[in-house]
Design a protein around this nucleic acid. Structure first.
Lengths: 232, 232
DNA sequence: GCACGTATTTGCGCCAGCGCAACTTCCGCG
DNA sequence: CGCGGAAGTTGCGCTGGCGCAAATACGTGC
């Protein structure tokens, strides 16, 4: 893919990040983008590496996972199409705070740091959009911190699924399908529990008909039912 | 206190948020600020209330605490002098995500939403500073999420104290004193454990000479010792 | 179609740390 | 200086869910 493909141009133009920009600015943004496609399992960037580019996902899915100096690792977020990722550290300590790994074949657009700062300076609207996006993620993380401090594993898993459905849900005949290729381990790492507990919990829910799980996609059959568990 | 007090002007001028602004802009910022002082226990704002102003703390200490629809509550952050608070939601859902409560007598400056947006538009540097500040808090929350998912209570408490020391530490003869009037419950609510566990843990550490605790302030006698616990 | 590696399921044992209650200490206030 | 209420301490019992291991199911590449 190339920045000037009409598909790519359309995708970049539609991003929340560039909402409210004039067409001329969008042209410029598109012209400076680098577009590349990576296969399943490829690393977009590694934790600790200097941040040289700002990234946006055009298609596919990325797992953002942070490892501690001890072994422990957490999934901070899954990134779906249209979302920005690995770009905030440009303004702080200039190091990626986590690994970014393609969960399926994925296409990203990215901008070199200098281009990025230059674009923001000339179109401050981008900065405001960025504050909005980062502010939402901050609020989401605050919710997660509260959940992890006060709720039992089952409720955290329910809240996680609801969040994922909101972020990347697609309505199908059977219910709301989550558009990420999730393993039990992924769900555990983002809900702050173990894959064993996730496995047991999800099996219970499948038996109760709350979810369907054909191993290539997870479908929330009854959002209301899951929501009831999330509330206690 | 009044916006035009030289003390207040100096405090506002020194804020990270307004770093890099020309003197004329700082004058304008100061002129539009509202300054007020609240007593211990007073509420700066309540969770769920619409956000009408952007806030900065000039002196004192604020506890930012979020309550879930169930009973559970967490302290999201303590705010010290010079820090911005309760201002990000202006860009997202316009509702305070948490309560802001004065832990001691405190003075804040604030700006009406319209003034605030107008200032940012005319001085985009403020937006960049804000992204930096919010980005740092995002990284800090990510660390907390990882800790809560992977570490035992003792290590989380150690990490919490180190974070507080970094944020509001003051070197004294006896070590690093944390500049917040912390109760056991506060430490528990921010480390995601109970006040009982905090009490036991802190007593152990006091016996080992790692901390000193005269009930009006907590002093880390040996940051290195606490750091060793934080690392496992 | 087969074989191997990866993901998932399920059983069992165990303990960190939470919940609660009773008691003590301390601080602020009059 | 004394009183009342808030904060802190400590003991005890209990359990959610983590750790590990073994068996099984899946799916991917050859």
């Amino acid at each position: 893919m190339h920045p000037h493909d009409p598909e790519v141009t359309a995708a970049i133009t539609a991003l929340d990040l560039f909402a409210g920009l004039p067409a001329s600015a969008l042209d410029e943004v598109t012209a400076r983008a680098r577009v590349r496609t990576l296969g399943r399992g490829a690393r977009m960037f590694d934790q600790g590496e200097p941040v040289e580019r700002a990234h946006v996902l055009l298609s596919g899915a990325i797992r953002i996972a942070q490892a501690g100096s001890d072994g422990g690792q957490v999934v901070l977020r899954f990134i779906g199409p249209g979302e920005i990722f690995g770009s905030v550290a440009i303004f702080t300590d200039h190091l990626y705070p986590a690994d970014g790994i393609a969960m399926v074949g994925s296409t990203e657009a990215s901008w070199a740091r200098a281009d990025w700062l230059d674009l923001i300076e000339r179109y401050p609207r981008i900065a405001l959009n960025l504050i909005t996006i980062v502010g939402r993620r901050l609020a989401e993380l605050q919710d997660r911190v509260r959940e992890m401090a006060t709720q039992r594993a089952e409720r955290r898993i329910a809240n996680t699924l609801l969040r994922l459905a909101r972020q990347a849900g697609r309505a199908t005949g059977a219910g709301t399908e989550i558009g990420f290729p999730l393993r039990r381990k992924d769900i555990a790492d983002i809900s702050g529990t173990t894959l064993f507990t996730v496995s047991r919990t999800l099996n219970d829910w499948r038996r109760q008909g709350l979810i369907a799980d054909d191993r290539r996609a997870l479908t929330l059959v009854s959002m209301a039912g899951i929501g009831r568990i999330a509330l206690g």
